[in-house]
Design a protein around this nucleic acid. Structure first.
Length: 194
DNA sequence: TGACAGATGTACT
DNA sequence: GTACATCTGTCAG
């Protein structure tokens, strides 16, 4: 494995237990997935297109994309400009601003499920097209606060919901955390090992 | 638990 | 013009 990818995976793990803040809403990140840009067939940046252009920008910025006609998902761009790698935030736990999140999401979900899934995180934080390219590190609207405490126990596994290169173990989550998304393998992804 | 419908932007032909 | 997508909510069994 190249050093660049090792660094990406280390960064992805460092995001676990970090916090995303937007106004009164705070979400503790419990599950992430790494995408290695042009080196990764599952990444949107595998091909450089107008949509994936933000991935080629500076690190620490947001790459937001709209999928399935319904959901906005949030990635954190990683690496020097041109690397086009990023980390998808797959699940988290709402630790503050529950009331506002419930207003956005409706009240049917139990607290654990409020940010359980990439689309739900986007919904909780009101992610939209205006957030593409936003600076998450120095910004004052949507901010990523890195973990300051000890590293949690981290488990890795194959990626979820992607059709290509699904068996790369680039998904990381906090062991035993009940907010980790339950989603399964892409229905058309080949079996692991094939 | 599993299957599927849903809405629309993006990429490819 | 067409196929598909880093998904979620709902319903049937």
């Amino acid at each position: 494995m190249s050093e660049e990818i090792e660094d990406l995976l280390t960064y992805a793990k460092s995001l676990l237990d970090s916090t995303l803040v937007r106004g009164p809403v705070r979400i503790r990140i419990t599950e992430v997935e790494a995408y290695a840009g042009p080196l990764d067939p599952a990444s949107h940046a595998f091909k450089r297109t107008p949509r994936s252009e933000p991935m080629y920008g500076p690190p620490g910025h947001a790459y937001c994309y709209f999928t399935y006609g319904l959901h906005w998902c949030l990635n954190v761009v990683w690496g020097p400009p041109g690397t086009a790698a990023g980390v998808l935030l797959r699940a988290g736990e709402v630790v503050a601003g529950h009331q506002l999140v419930r207003e956005r999401r409706g009240t049917t979900l139990v607290e654990r499920d409020l940010a359980r899934g990439p689309g739900r995180i986007g919904n909780c934080l009101a992610i939209g097209p205006e957030d593409i390219g936003l600076d998450l590190v120095n910004g004052d609207d949507l901010t990523l606060v890195m973990r300051s405490g000890p590293e949690p126990v981290i488990v890795s596994g194959p990626r979820v919901g992607v059709l290509r290169a699904a068996d790369r173990p680039w998904r990381f989550w906090i062991e035993g955390d009940r907010t980790v998304s339950p989603y399964k393998r892409h229905s058309q992804a080949p079996a692991i090992g094939s």
